[in-house]
């Protein structure tokens, strides 16, 4: 009943971006996002657009595959655009009863719409070119400095990677339980909201119980394999910066500077 749900949606390839250290990618994307909000005119935005087109090209991800991922957020983009178009006050260019479109509104809508699309494109490039495990590794490393102020970086990363590991298993299980309850006449997709929520009980109770049991067994299995937290732990694939990362860092600095300069045009 549930289709294939791809989480983390990694697309295997051997591109320059795939080979980049996840830490570099995360930081580069943060810089890109900030730049995206620093630029305040169409020249700047055009520049950001060109950069993201270039990034998509370098990533070697098929355009079709890339856009399929974007389709999911189309609704949010349209909603933002609509709100901007109709809600921004200013010089009216078109009016019908209470709906009015202003010049400023059109500008705002194009601006916000593009920003949003670029924001999501660039983050999806991150998840498309980075395996979930590299991503969690990267986050763990970047958060390490905050460990001193009590942030459990290792535990967070471990939780994330276990969650990623078990999402497909739990999806499969949900499917099984839904089928079993449907065989007993349960109906998951009709009725009003109250009925629909009620219908979820026979699904959620077994799902939670089995998730707890899994967690229990997993904890024992981890202990049996000598797991005792992040202390003195090594990694199979230790993260290592290369010349590539230095190169990307340089480009990011340039991008940020250009973004600031673009405000002066």
């Amino acid at each position: 009943m549930l289709g294939d749900i791809t989480i983390g949606q990694y697309y295997p390839s051997d591109s320059f971006l795939h080979k980049l250290d996840p830490r570099t990618k995360i930081i580069a994307i943060l810089i890109y996002m900030i730049s995206l909000f620093v630029v305040n005119n169409f020249y700047g935005l055009l520049g950001m657009l060109l950069i993201s087109i270039l990034v998509v090209m370098i990533s070697q991800i098929p355009i079709k595959y890339f856009f399929r991922g974007l389709k999911m957020i189309l609704f949010i983009v349209l909603l933002t655009v609509a709100l901007q178009i109709f809600m921004t006050p200013g010089t009216i260019v078109w009016q019908w009863s209470f709906l009015k479109i202003t010049e400023e509104g059109i500008k705002q809508a194009i601006f916000m719409g593009t920003r949003l699309v670029l924001l999501i494109s660039i983050t999806s490039i991150l998840t498309l070119t980075t395996t979930p495990i590299a991503l969690t590794d990267g986050i763990e490393h970047l958060l390490k400095p905050f460990q001193r102020i009590g942030l459990p970086a290792h535990e967070l990363a471990m939780m994330m990677s276990i969650a990623l590991r078990f999402i497909p298993t739990l999806v499969e299980e949900t499917d099984k339980i839904m089928k079993a309850q449907a065989a007993r006449g349960a109906n998951f997709d009709s009725g009003n909201i109250v009925e629909k929520v009620k219908a979820l009980v026979p699904l959620l109770v077994p799902l939670f119980l089995s998730a707890f049991q899994r967690a229990d067994e997993l904890a024992i299995a981890m202990e049996a394999r000598c797991y005792h937290g992040g202390a003195n732990r090594t990694r199979l694939k230790a993260l290592q910066y290369t010349k590539r990362d230095l190169f990307v860092a340089g480009i990011c600095v340039c991008m940020a500077l250009l973004a600031i300069c673009s405000r002066m045009i």
Binding site: K176, A180, A183, G185, P202
Partner: peptide, 22 residues
Amino acid sequence: VVFQYPEYQLFEETVEQDIAFG
């Protein structure tokens, strides 16, 4: 239809209520 490991489909508070679900 009784699926594999059917015990994982139980959810009610009492045995009686669970059997009554169908």
